[in-house]
Design a protein around this nucleic acid. Sequence first.
DNA 1: CGAGCATAGTTGCTCTTGAAACTATATGTC
DNA 2: GACATATAGTTTCAAGAGCAACTATGCTCG
Lengths: 171, 171
Amino acid sequence: MEGRPKMPQEPADAVDGVAEAGLPTRQELDLNQFLPYRLNRLADRISDELERMYAQRYELNVAQWRVLAWLSHCDDLTAKKVCTYTNMDKARVSRAVQALVDRGLVSRTPSVRDQRVHELHLTGDGAELLSRLIPQAQDWEAELVATLSVGEYRDLLNAMGKLERQLERMG
Amino acid sequence: MEGRPKMPQEPADAVDGVAEAGLPTRQELDLNQFLPYRLNRLADRISDELERMYAQRYELNVAQWRVLAWLSHCDDLTAKKVCTYTNMDKARVSRAVQALVDRGLVSRTPSVRDQRVHELHLTGDGAELLSRLIPQAQDWEAELVATLSVGEYRDLLNAMGKLERQLERMG
DNA sequence: CGAGCATAGTTGCTCTTGAAACTATATGTC
DNA sequence: GACATATAGTTTCAAGAGCAACTATGCTCG
């Protein structure tokens, strides 16, 4: 396992921990080296920025944007699928879809084969909105990753993929 | 890479986009290649797992855990600092600190130099709790990143650092 | 000094979220 | 065919989060 999260030099410990006997000195956690924390902070900040973009310009919240984004390349979708793809609660998805339907961006029709499921599709308006929003999102992302080389970018996605699979295994 | 929720191929675009003239055919966004989405999904899943851990075992929520973690290596802290470090709302921090003080894990004393600020410190109980929690968190992280080589791990944090700095520049 | 402005932190209010209950449809078993 | 169980999706309800208003303290500059 070779201790991963290497700590920045502690001042040779015993800062205020019990140094005397074998008792461990005070535990520290360097959050800047702690992956979950770093990942969260980065993801949050990116999310905030991006959210500002589509919230201001298109009055979409995150859940709605995710539904639309999935619909953009997966034309035959159900609420359930959105749940599993996006890891969002089904209530949240339900409400997001409802809002999109109300705005005429998405159509929802009961499936012929199974009356429980509803097929979701982009309407013309929805497609039109996405045709403006998606390039903006991609441009923004391009600027964000502009400081990474192609290799670094690939490696980043790659590492993230590994972590997701490991997470799957651990869960 | 073996893309996660593998999409069913769409029938080569123009499904309902305006194909006629030079107008772009329907816009697609492959979320699995879209960094903000990938990052968010990964961070969320990690956060969920970790949260389960300290929620179940120690009855801490995310905000409380973050305050404690910062206190663990930054012994002289104020609510304000926690806000800037963690990017959390000051109300949220205030309530988290309040809960920790109520539980006797943290002490809060008005600063002598400036009565507005309150100095936060770990109590003995707080330090004791952390001495159990932190190793568990580190072990969990170690298992998570076990599939990455040392180099991959370093590169990952590195790339994340670059992205954060770029974000700063863009904001 | 004192009026205005800035800052740390708390409290009140509203909106979102997620868990759980619920509805409606489908499937499996005897 | 009827009853038990499973699944998709909606609705209800309580807790948490963020915004804004507020309190208290400190700072600046005439």
